[in-house]
């Protein structure tokens, strides 16, 4: 079923795939993020309870949602690498990890900036905040473990195991709200039957989620390309590529 996927185990195929996808996703991400943010900041109505502070939602919720999805994407890459012994999968994993860490940081920071006016404190040891912090530690662990090994092949496998062990934590994050049920407000948009948020407020949020996802994908592809170049620098196709790039730049 997944046979068509296997060609991308070759670094060259993965590289050209990234090259083809990057312009599309970069365009989607730019378009959506600009539209969603402008709409959210300028045109969406104020919340009757939180006033204009609720506008932080347009960056906080996409970052918080996608920090978990990004972790899952990283873990899937690790699983593919461990099961099929793909080198590109491990490269993808380590390309995604810092992006995920950055997104998690954004979620934490915006959460703090939202919490200050709403709860009166920058940081509250609430279940979701804590879980998000654990997620940041998970990303840091994977990156630190990868960096600790000199042999990057070995490093990929070790960090892959760590990423998979951490997957146990993602459901804990997701269900922690129900389990510990504390200060943090419940999920607003995943209630499919009747969204608890006005459609005028919802649209920019959805657009920003798409934009953020496309942004994460684009940056991960860029970093994957870099990783491939770094690891394959002795291959003829990389040498050729670098030299043709140089020729292009000189024109």
């Amino acid at each position: 079923m997944f046979m068509w996927l296997h060609q991308y185990a070759k670094t060259e195929a993965a590289y050209s795939l990234c090259n083809r996808l990057i312009p599309w996703f970069a365009a989607i991400s730019m378009g959506c993020l600009v539209t969603g943010t402008v709409w959210g900041l300028l045109f969406a109505p104020s919340d009757y309870q939180q006033g204009d502070a609720f506008r932080i939602i347009y960056i906080h919720v996409p970052a918080a949602m996608l920090s978990m999805s990004t972790y899952i994407a990283m873990a899937v890459a690790a699983l593919v690498g461990l099961v099929w012994q793909w080198r590109t999968a491990f490269m993808a994993m380590i390309a995604i990890a810092p992006v995920g860490a950055a997104v998690t940081f954004i979620a934490l920071f915006t959460g703090a900036a939202w919490g200050k006016p709403m709860w009166g404190a920058w940081w509250v040891w609430d279940a979701r905040l804590t879980s998000e912090l654990i997620l940041l530690f998970l990303y840091c662990g994977v990156i630190a473990l990868y960096c600790a090994f000199d042999d990057k092949q070995q490093a990929g496998k070790a960090a892959g195991v760590m990423a998979l062990v951490g997957v146990v934590n993602v459901p804990v994050i997701h269900f922690s709200v129900q389990w510990w049920n504390t200060l943090h407000q419940g999920a607003t948009i995943t209630r499919l039957d009747k969204p608890a948020i006005a459609t005028q407020m919802l649209w920019p949020l959805l657009i920003n989620i798409v934009g953020m996802a496309a942004f994460i994908f684009t940056i991960s592809c860029v970093r994957l390309k870099n990783e491939i170049i770094r690891r394959e620098q002795r291959r003829p196709w990389v040498q050729q590529l670098v030299h043709s790039n140089e020729a292009k730049n000189e024109l």
Binding site: R55, I56, I59, I106, A113
Partner: peptide, 20 residues
């Protein structure tokens, strides 16, 4: 001013987009 919440709103958006 963002209805008095300007600092928090602009701080979050500023930091987020800077990180990106």
């Amino acid at each position: 001013a963002m209805g008095g919440y300007g600092l928090y709103v602009w701080l979050s958006f500023g930091v987020s987009f800077s990180v990106m």
